[in-house]
């Protein structure tokens, strides 16, 4: 699967952009937190697309963001 690029995203409407990013992020997040992958992906999709693209290219920043989101989710559910 070819990497998602900013120009590919720019060609799509916002709704499609978020869907494209979600479809790419979900499997990566599922590897880290299979049970809450849908919730975490939904949380991260609210971040702006340039940061989401960066997270797709950099596993460390994705991992850091995912752990942050898990903490927020747990606090929210408490």
């Amino acid at each position: 699967q070819e990497p998602l690029t900013a120009s590919m995203l720019a060609a799509a409407p916002l709704k499609e952009q978020k869907q494209l990013l979600g479809e790419r992020l979900y499997p990566l997040i599922q590897m880290l937190h299979p049970v809450v992958a849908g919730k975490i992906t939904g949380m991260l999709l609210e971040i702006d697309n340039s940061e989401l693209l960066h997270m797709l290219e950099s596993p460390e920043s994705l991992h850091a963001k995912v752990e942050e989101a898990v903490a927020v989710l747990q606090a929210h559910q408490a």
Partner: peptide, 22 residues
């Protein structure tokens, strides 16, 4: 109050519902 619909869950192949929050 806690918004029980948050976060807008993402399901592969299903249009994501979180757009209205942006």
């Amino acid at each position: 109050g806690t918004n029980v619909n948050w976060p807008p869950e993402f399901c592969p192949g299903v249009p994501w519902k979180g757009l209205q929050n942006i």
